[in-house]
Amino acid sequence: MLPNTYKLLQKKKKAILELWMKNQLADEGLREDLISNDELRSQSEELVSALIGNLSSDSIDDFNSDQWSPVIEILGGIAITRARQGFTPRETGNFVFSLKEALIEVLQQELQGDLQSLFAESLKVNRIIDNLTVVTFETFIKGREEVILRQTDEITEISTPVIRVWDGILALPIIGTLDSARTQVVMENLLQEIVETGSSIAILDISGVPAVDSLVAQHLIKTVSATRLMGAECIISGIRPEIAQTVVHLGIDLSNIITKSSLASALAYAFKAMRLEVRKINAVQKF
């Protein structure tokens, strides 16, 4: 880049910012519901200052140079905030691309007479902004992934409640797919609860498990065996016909495990095993 070009850009910083803001505000995709105009302006101002302040003849050609790190840092911060606020990728991309338009428009005004250098300079501006866009997207996606990861953790936490249905009987409804990590949590919660309540029967209800493959079955068998080692009995309930079909077709042996079709029949079995009886009261009694 010609030495006077970045001086020129530095001189025209104010104009670039104004142009950029105008572009952004004119854009249909402006999300006033997610970010206020003042906030947008301060974000933009910070980025323009960092970008233009760090322009020099060295940094233009080498995007890996240290001079870019403040700009990347600011841009990364903006991208992550936007990912969390729920901006779409397109809106985040447009945020950076509209800066390119502003920069090129300023260059166009200043270098009107000299088409050759206008073209060369535009190319360089293009390259810088493209690099910045890539950085923005990388950070944006990373921000999104963090959100997903956190939600996954939360789902794992909340989706494995151990319910005490009766004195000495625990029930554990499993909703969603069972993977290794989740089985670990399920097993730990269940065994811990068995120790705390001194329960002798645990019912594992899998009516909320969409599919059972050999791995899931393996996990179930592990949980049942661990419960048995603790000195309690584990019943698997809520087996749908399709699941029974898959299990047999896969050749998984569940004959050592007590299985019941519904939670109700599992509970009935548990009552029987504990020598309890549920009876209908003949006379109408007031409670």
Binding site: Q184, M187, E188, L191, Q192, I194, V195, K222, S225, A226, T227, L229, M230, G231
Partner: peptide, 14 residues
Amino acid sequence: VVGMQPAVAITLIE
């Protein structure tokens, strides 16, 4: 065998 700790049970199964 009585009173096995949860962690011990999980380890044995694993």
